[in-house]
Simulated scan of single mutants.
Amino acid sequence: MADHNDSGKLAEQLAADWLVTKGYEFVDKNYRHGHAEIDVIMKHRGLLIFIEIKFRSGTGFGFAEEFVDSTKKKLVIKAADQYIYENDWHNDIRFDIVGVYKDRHGNVNFRHFEDAFY
């Protein structure tokens, strides 16, 4: 697997673990429907939350959340619709983005954007 894929998977795990420390309940990860994928699915305060994780080693080329374009959003929504159907979910949902940033010293920081799109 390419280094950037390894970094992405590690970022997803780090973000999921970080969200658990914030009171979120882990539900699923890497849910696929056709070409669409949801990185992490969590529950929090009665909501089912579909989370796109973006990793960046620095912000020189922009912030992680800027890389979730309209095509990616449509794919995540499509997969979420299928997940909701398969799991017979009847409560509210939300779409979040979590940016995972590693600085030059190896420190990892997070930026969480709740209700980022729909």
Rank of each mutant, 00 (worst) to 15 (best):
E52N: 07
Y118F: 09
F61M: 03
V40C: 09
E12A: 07
A16K: 08
N107G: 04
I93Y: 03
K73H: 00
I97P: 06
E65R: 06
I53S: 08
W18L: 02
V27C: 08
A80G: 05
S70E: 13
Q13F: 04
G46R: 07
F113G: 00
D96L: 03
A36E: 02
T59Q: 09
G23D: 02
F61T: 11
E12D: 09
G34P: 00
V100A: 06
G106K: 14
K102M: 15
A80W: 01
A64S: 12
A116T: 10
I84M: 09
Y83N: 08
E25N: 11
E65K: 04
H105S: 15
G46A: 06
Y24C: 10
A36S: 14
D6S: 12
V68M: 02
R45S: 12
L14R: 12
D92Q: 13
I84F: 06
V68P: 01
A15C: 12
F113T: 02
L19M: 15
A80N: 03
G62Q: 00
L48Y: 09
H35N: 08
E114H: 11
D17L: 01
K43M: 12
I93C: 11
K78A: 09
R111Q: 13
Q82M: 06
F113Q: 03
V76W: 02
L75H: 04
N87T: 15
Y118H: 13
D17H: 01
A11K: 06
